[in-house]
């Protein structure tokens, strides 16, 4: 009897062991598949450009140099696009977070006239979409094509953010607000000095989601911006990929005789430009994501409960 049970246990642990090994291998492989592309592009940008242009760099960098990043400033349109991307990310995020905080708080005020109706009015917009053309024409009628405000205004009130903040405010002790009101603080005063300080954690979540969304946004530039001065990094990256060959010739003709004098290993090629810009565009995400992962996770969880 005892013998048998030991045998069963042995068998089970062998099966468990096999499962463990397979699980580790599969997850390690998938993590590798997720990480390698970024690594591959990065080692190519710091390797000799003639080698990377021939596809010789697969795992280890060769002929390490950083001129690609130094020369990135000369890539036509890149600096301006970086300014626009940074500007929309900071301005858009700051305003969206502030508005989400204010609206989320206001919708917890039971004293407001027809509060539930207005709340539904905003939440309902999550479930329909007029479509690209009606939206585009609306934006054109509002003179928001080729206008920086188009990056900021439409995203200002997001129903999802309002839900997140409202839920959070409701979970904080109401007595704090009541106490302030007894001391004579008005609606706005309560918001600024009582609510705002205690909802910082949820605002961090909203901020990080908004910032990533703003940085990654592509479609609004595609639809609304013909003025190259307002193009974002995402958009110019897309253009660089599609115009890879013409870009290479542009660079050679721009640089003229300089390019010939430059060593082959550091002269810009279409490949080097494409890869360098890719790394420049992805770096903010790579830097920010690991540190703020918990905010992302929290955001999706609260959203799942309420959304």
């Amino acid at each position: 009897m005892k013998e048998k049970s030991r045998k069963v246990k042995m068998k089970r642990s062998v099966g468990d062991y096999a499962i463990s090994v397979i699980t580790y291998i599969v997850y390690a492989l998938f993590a590798l598949v997720c990480a390698y592309p970024f690594y591959y592009i990065f080692v190519n940008t710091i390797s000799a450009n003639d080698l990377s242009d021939k596809g010789k760099i697969l795992f280890w960098p060769q002929g390490v140099h950083f001129t690609n990043y130094v020369n990135a400033i000369q890539i036509p349109g890149l600096l301006q696009a970086a300014k626009i991307s940074v500007a929309r990310t900071f301005i858009g995020t700051a305003l969206t977070v502030l508005m989400a905080a204010f609206l989320g708080y206001m919708f917890t005020r039971e004293t407001m006239w027809k509060r539930k109706l207005w709340y539904r009015f905003i939440i309902l917009t999550m479930y329909f979409n007029a479509g690209i053309i009606p939206w585009y024409i609306t934006m054109r009628n509002l003179h928001l094509t080729n206008n920086f405000l188009a990056y900021v205004l439409p995203a200002l009130v997001s129903p999802f953010n309002v839900i997140l903040v409202k839920t959070y405010v409701e979970s904080t002790p109401r007595e704090l607000q009541d106490a302030a009101e007894i001391d004579g603080a008005g609606t706005l005063r309560v918001f600024a000095s009582v609510v705002l300080p205690i909802i910082k954690p949820i605002l961090a979540t909203v901020a990080i989601f908004t910032a990533v969304g703003q940085w990654n946004s592509f479609q609004d530039t595609l639809l609304l911006m013909t003025d190259t001065k307002l193009h974002t990094l995402q958009f110019v990256l897309y253009q660089y990929i599609n115009q890879a060959n013409s870009l290479a010739s542009l660079l050679t003709s721009n640089a003229g005789s300089d390019a010939i004098q430059q060593a082959l290993s550091t002269a810009q090629t279409a490949t080097s430009v494409r890869m360098t810009v890719t790394i420049i565009v992805v770096t903010p995400i790579l830097l920010v994501y690991p540190f703020f992962q918990r905010f992302f996770v929290k955001g999706i969880m609260i959203g799942a409960v309420k959304g």
Binding site: A28, Q234, T271
Partner: peptide
């Protein structure tokens, strides 16, 4: 594993395309 595998979700489709193109 969790950090690395969630990362691609936060890069834009343009970047995914760029990665695809480069690979």
């Amino acid at each position: 594993v969790q950090t690395i595998t969630t990362l691609p979700n936060f890069v834009s489709w343009v970047l995914v395309f760029s990665i695809a193109y480069n690979l």
